[in-house]
Design a protein around this nucleic acid. Structure first.
Lengths: 228, 228
DNA sequence: CGGTATTTTGAAAGCTCTCAAGGGCCGTGG
DNA sequence: CCACGGCCCTTGAGAGCTTTCAAAATACCG
């Protein structure tokens, strides 16, 4: 979610540029051997994971975001990466990155940190969704997108959804109809305007409040530190 | 979820052993500066994340499992780690591990892989839960626990739950009552026996089937590979 | 311009939550 | 050792939310 394109472009000779992907074209397919990490340069991708019985929309990727970190551990991409629109990416062969980390503590920490960050933010996001109502999930989703667009230098209040309502529904673990109804509800309340895929975030505070609202508050345990 | 205790104990001088933690005692508190990764040696821990408005039960850790990987990226533990019972852990100061990776490609890859694996399996788990009914969530939870105990050399069919129903509920994003009712339903159907915290998995195939059952099946995109 | 995919809306069924109450278990203190 | 209090677990009933099924309106692509 940060803009490290410039940082990484300094690693001379480790980058490959792809020809543009057309809409619906796939960058990698689930099960392909892991070779590289990618960074979205323009457009957007979705990660789709098919597992016995069901297919999951695991993630959306916008420009500047790293894709493929979850393929490191067993050398296989766990899901297909599909372009939501005409998109371009650049590729970092992992063995090159790895070689560079030997003598570069800064890069090594950057890589660790980046993976760890992904781990945590994904976890947090899914945890947040788990206990929430459909309205809260959608509000959270929109705010999250808004934030990401904003960090790219675009407006946080007006942007275009790269994905279909169906994609959003699967991503949030809801039915398409539920998304549609929530959208209508939000518009009726004047919180957003959504014509086609053009979003206007009209009442950000209300959306944030909705996104934050939860259902329950469990207790915590004691707090005694262990001696070292 | 693997047994790397022996592997890691070969890294002489980088391990510290803690005195046992009593039930409800905390190993680290949310916001503490990140210094180390831990491995559970005996007992079990839960990770609790308090965020504006709500508290989440983010994870359970059994013996052999690594704890604290999610603290790497911004040098802070994102949640409190609390013992569910009398427990022992060993500690790996991160800067020591990091220093070791400089000249040890095997360890470096192990660390990368371990973090990446965590990233993926957590993601997969939460994704699975998102679109599922309460029965499916509980069945999945029990099967997951069973698997983990089995890998530790214990029976996959009989084990003791280290956590309360309330903990399970918060972990799965459900109400306690929903868990309780699901348990009763499972027992009525002869799928499990659960007296106090003693679990008997009576009909594993049925539980697995339940855990796998989902609600929807989204479509996938095209499959055209990009030239390199 | 036609065909297909996407989106919206309605109505009924199903699932989960909330609120309430009763019983059981455990650890502590007397 | 027993009694007490607090936490944990279970169950019932009604309300609220989400899904499913069906159908119509709209947008997009070639």
């Amino acid at each position: 979610m940060s803009h490290d394109i410039d940082d990484i472009e300094t690693f001379d000779g480790t980058i490959h540029f792809h020809r543009p992907l057309r809409k619906r074209e796939s960058l990698v397919r689930q099960g392909d051997p892991f070779t590289s990490i990618f960074m979205v340069r323009s457009g957007s991708l979705k990660q789709v994971i098919a597992e016995e019985g069901d297919t999951q929309l695991a993630n959306f990727y916008l420009p500047g975001e790293l894709v493929g970190l979850d393929g490191i551990h067993d050398s296989v991409y766990p899901g297909s990466l599909i372009a939501l629109e005409t998109s371009t990416v650049c590729e970092f062969p992992f063995h090159r990155l790895d070689a560079l980390t030997v003598n570069d503590a800064k890069l090594r920490h950057y890589l660790y940190g980046r993976i760890s960050k992904e781990l945590r933010s994904e976890h947090r996001l899914l945890r947040l969704l788990l206990g929430k109502t459909s309205d809260a999930r959608l509000a959270f989703f929109l705010c999250h997108l808004s934030e990401r667009f904003h960090r790219l230098g675009f407006s946080a209040h007006r942007f275009r959804l790269p994905m279909t309502r169906t994609d959003i529904a699967h991503y949030l673990g809801l039915a398409v109809e539920t998304i549609s109804r929530a959208v209508s509800r939000f518009q009726r309340k004047g919180m957003i305007s959504l014509i086609g895929r053009e979003v206007h975030m009209l009442d950000m505070p209300a959306l944030v409040a909705l996104a934050t609202g939860t259902r329950e508050i469990p207790p915590a345990g004691h707090r005694v530190h262990v001696s070292r």
